[in-house]
Design a binder for these strands. Sequence first.
DNA 1: ATTAAAATATGATATTTATCATAATAAAAG
DNA 2: CTTTTATTATGATAAATATCATATTTTAAT
Lengths: 226, 226
Amino acid sequence: MSKCEQCIVREFSSLKALTKQELVQLSDCKTSHIVKKGEIIFKEGDTVNGIYCIKDGVCKLIKLSANGKDHIVKLVTKGELLGQRSMISEEPVNLSAVALDDMQVCFIPKSEVMGYFDKNNKFSMNVMKTICGDLKEADDQMVNLAQKTVKERLAETLLYLHDTFGTNGDASLKVQLSRDDLASMIGTATESCIRLLSDFKKLGLIELSGKKIILLDLSKLKKLAE
Amino acid sequence: MSKCEQCIVREFSSLKALTKQELVQLSDCKTSHIVKKGEIIFKEGDTVNGIYCIKDGVCKLIKLSANGKDHIVKLVTKGELLGQRSMISEEPVNLSAVALDDMQVCFIPKSEVMGYFDKNNKFSMNVMKTICGDLKEADDQMVNLAQKTVKERLAETLLYLHDTFGTNGDASLKVQLSRDDLASMIGTATESCIRLLSDFKKLGLIELSGKKIILLDLSKLKKLAE
DNA sequence: ATTAAAATATGATATTTATCATAATAAAAG
DNA sequence: CTTTTATTATGATAAATATCATATTTTAAT
């Protein structure tokens, strides 16, 4: 079993506040898991008795709507924690988590995490700040969905993927979303998403080859995203 | 100066966790304010060095979008606290708060609140749960904006106003929003909102008289909201 | 009370976006 | 390697929504 004390990823999450002693204890009670691309980590409505720490890979947090389509609320990647909100609220999770890559995740049982909450003030403050950050982002996204056009949202999302997850050697976006996923991230029909990508390609803003997307003109995309 | 120990409203917020001693101390450092309808409590970008406790009235939390229109992210009413996120994140507020009614609010300086955070575990847990609740709601709204039609969102919002803020003696919604505000709550153009209200009226779902809105057929509205 | 200003309402039209249909391409399975 | 299936792409059309114009009503101000 790998040791949390030596895990670099920890430094990027609220867990960075843990003491050496707490980390040793954590190593003993955590479990490590491999999650293959497409597999579900947890499902809306599940009772998840703890939190997941993402060691590698990216997953989508999705919410099913009344009409059966689902919406991608957020992408989460290595260094981040999953299931904090649910644990604090003492409610089932309100989102499903599905791997977009092959992932490595560690599960930390609730009992352990709650202990840190009580004893380690810095840890609980970190978690709170993270959740506050999520809330702020959610507010922003809400306004975008309410007021921006699909074209603007697509441009913005492409830039977000570029800036947040970076590019491969060939300049293509590292996170490879299907057109379907991209559409459910910006809140539109798959065909509309595909059509706009074609438009962007014709305008020389992006290059498409298979699932790969290369952003060619960042500044024009920024203007389009307003 | 009114005493917090005797304030009923406190029982409805995170402040219910405070001890008698803490409440006495709170009474000494809080300031009470009257905010007239339409007045601004704080503005996006402001540094608010504390939190507001709403004793009476309702306000809207709005966010300005790039195109100049603003979006109502949330309505907040008596018993609730304002500015918690900003205080925890140690960032300027990301939303503006504008009174929809004449309001009574109390301001509690940051130094005081942070003291409770450190010493009163129940209080900080309450605040966390509130923010987690806000995040869950934000996720829901996001999906609604992404996937529901304007008609569905209008029906849902009318029901929300009905269920959350109640009705007057004549069965009209207690919170009176302008058509403009209603539109910026559901994320549509003012004219579209007005048009749909007229449609609902013609269908016998609601009654309109001036600014007053009366919901006549809750179950049909529920079906419309899906 | 009268005028001015703002809010509400409705029609006409343009634009955006979704849906349905079908083709082309890519990926997976046998 | 070939067949099947899923994904991506594009056209045609329908539906939803925004915008512009203008009328009506309500509210506020003089």
